[in-house]
Design a protein around this nucleic acid. Structure first.
Lengths: 357, 357
DNA sequence: TCCATCGATCGAATCGATTCGACACCCGAG
DNA sequence: CTCGGGTGTCGAATCGATTCGATCGATGGA
């Protein structure tokens, strides 16, 4: 205590070895004192911690630790879109929340990556990570998958296209949509149209063409479409440029123009459906009396609408948790298996029997 | 090519040394071949890369690299709330987008941390990072600041309470709100009320009391309040439990009940203001004819309202970029100085002279 | 013809911890 | 009195790269 410690703020961090020296113990013992692994006398531990305090030592360097242990304590989430875009979708946010919570409880932190920018350095190629979760429904993640599996990073997919050797978390998109479609059919609807999620990376709008259906870039969107067409084989579909209210509005306008006899519109997400409601109402029509509208997700969207949307509820937070658990299992060397959640039809007040028109 | 390389998928990553050996060069040369620093003959580089391919080597291990170089390539963002909550605020999302974009361009990745959980391991205490950005307006981040400065991690604050030695990015909350209040005064308003951001960590609702104002837990909220009170010294204020539409709705109902003569409501965020509009309209009153409503942020909130909200626009993405640049500057050893952005009043159609009532 | 220079490569030290095996010591049981 | 079994501590090896200085030819100008 007489000798002045490291001049505070001299820029050079103290090392464990220095702390150990000052406490009069070996580096190994000091390490044990910090990590708690292995037996250390209380008195010794105290001395080490005191020395650390005097030297302003902030604990073992994560870099060195991770080199030695082979673990960085980081799990990455890879998204397709940039944050501003991706996070406008409440499903992405809740999913991420589930992931963060679960890995946080296990002592891991969340690294946010967007694959979009294939920069020379940084990101996918260089960032330390113990595992990665791939978000998104398109095959656009292919390059990311390649880079990361080359790095031998364990990968988990969420709503990704099924792919050899990629464990996944998914929901029954098709069955859920089929149940919704059946609900509409039972109400008596015959002319039903769909607003789909984006079908290509360019986020092109327009009527869904055969080309898109074949190229199968957007797995989730096509699955949900199939669910509706299981019941209404000829249901027309309009592709939106994003899962957003205003996109739903745009797409619904197009549908209302192109399909005169329409009695119901199904959005592939709740936001799209809300946009559709706006489109219907701006024409002076009523929901559900004149046109029924339904969505998908069960998003809790606050204050957006007077209606309680009929929708297919998916357990988004749980999906995130499950994906995180899969990653943790992979890290623990346990076997990982695909996880599938089921959805549930929630009937609100936006669907009703078709009007007399 | 005759000798079989590492059995693919044997679980053990090849090392740079093995690659070097196979290519018949030293490890140093192999390192140079990968990093591009230093002169390497083309032919040699080719041989190294070929060997890497044969051994299925995915590039230098980030853990080892970061130990040696002292850089992890990670910049952390520390938030107060959990993701699900924080990301409902569009300002947080755009801010984060700016940050991610800027640090991404510099080859860094973004680590998302919430300080809330002071777990024994993981997170603030253990995660590798080269710098950290602190988001949020309360002094609740104190423990986080302590832990991180002990670790000698360079810190940058965003909308944080001014604090000794913490470089910051901020906006002129008070001046912006003052200008908005002046706009209302010019229109002839005299009875103006405010809906404030949460004032304590518990997110307590209710009329703003002196206790809250003194404890000064919510820097941004108090600044914005001062701006209004510069013009309307006695403006009553209702504290919301979050920057959400439904919270604005709740708070505005309380204000409308408690303050009969009210002619204008100022929300401290656009979401709060939108809630206020709903509250006004659900009483059969019109905006702006009967009651004017204004917000703060200039958030682009899609499809939420028929109105164009009068608001104070802040450059949220730029704020994020600036914070990121500050962090990068700190890492480069350059001097970092506080950055302040100015806001701009945007007059929409939700403010008008007070009604004849 | 000689020496300074540059290009290409290599050896060895280093980053800061964790961890395995060994060692000394003390206790109680036989 | 001795031996087995904990405890507490230490030494040394190790994780996988980066990087500094040295070496060695070849080149080119004087």
């Amino acid at each position: 205590m007489a000798t002045p410690a490291n001049p505070p703020g001299d820029g050079t961090r103290a090392t464990l070895a220095q702390v150990a020296a000052r406490a009069g113990v070996s580096a190994s013992t000091a390490s044990l004192a910090f990590s708690g692994a292995g037996p250390v006398a209380d008195e010794t531990r105290e001395r080490v911690l005191a020395a650390a305090r005097e030297l302003d030592y902030g604990g073992p360097d994560p870099r060195a630790r991770s080199l030695r242990t082979g673990r960085s304590g980081i799990i990455a989430v890879v998204m397709e879109d940039r944050i501003r875009v991706a996070f406008r979708d409440p499903m992405v946010v809740t999913l991420l929340d589930g992931i963060a919570d679960e890995i946080g409880n296990a002592g891991y932190s969340l690294l946010l990556l967007t694959d979009s920018l294939e920069r020379a350095e940084g990101g996918l190629r260089d960032a330390p990570m113990d595992a990665a979760l791939l978000l998104g429904c398109s095959t656009d993640l292919d390059p990311a998958v390649r880079v990361l599996s080359q790095r031998q990073v364990p990968l988990i997919g969420v709503e990704a296209e099924p792919r050899q050797g990629l464990p996944m978390v998914d929901i029954d998109n098709r069955a859920g949509m089929r149940r919704l479609a059946e609900h509409l059919a039972e109400l008596g609807h015959e002319r039903v149209a769909v607003i789909t999620l984006p079908m290509d990376r360019d986020h092109t709008r327009g009527p869904l063409t055969q080309v898109w259906q074949d190229s199968s870039v957007a797995y989730t969107g096509l699955e949900r479409l199939s669910g509706v067409r299981d019941v209404f084989p000829d249901a027309p579909a309009e592709v939106a440029a994003g899962s957003l209210i205003e996109e739903g509005l745009i797409a619904a306008r197009a549908l209302l123009d192109a399909e005169p006899g329409l009695t119901a519109i199904v959005g592939q997400s709740d936001l799209l459906a809300l946009g559709a409601i706006q489109a219907v109402e701006e024409r002076g029509l009523r929901v559900p009396e004149d046109i029924s509208v339904a969505g998908f997700d069960g998003a809790r969207i606050d204050g957006l609408s007077r209606h309680r949307l009929t929708t297919v509820v998916q357990p988004s937070v749980e999906k995130g948790r499950a994906a995180a658990r899969l990653a943790l299992a992979a890290l623990a060397g346990e076997p990982v298996e695909n996880v599938a959640f089921t959805t549930e039809l929630r009937i609100g007040d936006t669907t009703a029997p078709p009007g007399p028109a």
